[in-house]
Design a protein around this nucleic acid. Structure first.
Length: 300
DNA sequence: AAGGTGTGCAACCGCGCATTC
DNA sequence: AGAATGCGCGGTTGCACACCT
């Protein structure tokens, strides 16, 4: 008979008296052999319940309370890599239990990702036509596309973070932060995604890169465009200006006045496919080439 | 003030794997 | 070799509390 099938045993919340009995027992005898613990400790509980109570609540090195931004980030990174492997994720957060992380994911992070237009399972974007229209009178399509762009951007950023974790774990690198993903190979583009600004010259339009000193705590990501396309009725922009940074509120960083207008005009005309080219260029970059980057860091 | 609803979290449950007999 | 047992994991439930109507 399984221990949890025993009749007459208490279930539900633990009382302080029960906690004390279990604590006393474990202090004196150590843990393990959970099936025999209830009888020896004088508890009307099954062994499984005792084990759970110890692991999730009574163990002395458990950290309780709010999750820090660092922990939050680690959970998202590892979940992107591992999925619902809570115990493995918990192993990277030594003072947190798998149950606590699982609860935090389900009640907090999961909802946040959905709000951002990200699928909490795959960490990839949800297609814009799956968003509900609000029907409050004003044009929702632009907002929807903007959210979708941001979501794709964020999705790629999360993936970069996850890859960074994987590379760091795999290589045993002592690099603590400032992940370098600066030299993502630019993929050959379809003609519709390339632009010619000079005779006989075709440039790849987008390459998604994260700057060498990219701070993952920041809500800002940078998307670099090796060559800005000509936008009709707007001044030309030089190469060195052709880098945009998105903030989480969908505004641009480091741009002002005419340049900002040009950028806004240009970005507002971006098609989903355009963004996808940049994101896919990043996604299809091979992990081993990223490993190489750690050996010989290069700047953007 | 009272009932309804939503949220967070501790605890339970069933399953599967590893070990022991 | 196969059954029994122990343990760990991930999904789910249900309770307590907060907030809303």
């Amino acid at each position: 008979m399984r221990c949890c099938e025993n009749v007459g045993l208490k279930k539900g919340p633990w009382t302080p008296e029960e906690d004390n009995k279990l604590l006393d027992y474990v202090r004196n005898h150590g843990h393990g052999k959970w099936r025999s613990v209830p009888a020896k400790a004088g508890l009307q509980r099954c062994g499984k319940s005792c084990r759970l109570r110890w692991i999730n609540y009574l163990k002395p090195d458990i950290k309780r309370g709010n999750f820090s931004a660092e922990e939050d980030r680690t959970i998202i990174q590892l979940h992107a890599l591992l999925g619902n492997k809570w115990s493995i994720i918990a192993a990277h957060l030594p003072q947190r239990t798998d149950n606590e992380i699982k609860n935090y994911w389900n009640t907090n992070i999961k909802k946040r990702l959905i709000t951002m237009g990200l699928d909490p399972i795959s960490h990839k974007t949800i297609k814009p036509n799956t968003f509900e229209a609000c029907g409050d009178g004003h044009d929702q399509s632009k907002d929807t596309i903007n959210i979708y762009h941001m979501a794709q951007w964020e999705s790629a950023r999360l993936e970069a973070e996850a890859r960074g974790s994987m590379v760091q774990v795999g290589s045993g690198s002592s690099r603590s932060s400032g992940l370098i993903l600066s030299k993502i190979p630019i993929q050959p583009c379809l003609s519709s995604h390339s632009v010619s600004t000079e005779p006989n010259t075709v440039y790849n339009m987008y390459a998604l890169v994260l700057a060498p000193n990219h701070d993952f705590r920041s809500s800002v990501s940078t998307l670099s465009f090796p060559r800005f396309p000509a936008v009709s009725n707007t001044p030309q922009i030089t190469n060195k200006e052709s880098s945009l940074s998105y903030k989480s509120d969908n505004s641009f960083m480091g741009a002002s006045g005419q340049r900002k207008k040009v950028m806004e005009s240009w970005v507002s005309n971006l098609q989903d496919d355009d963004i996808m080219v940049a994101v896919e260029a990043f996604r299809t970059a091979r992990s081993d080439s990223i490993e190489e980057l750690f050996k010989e860091p290069t700047s953007v």
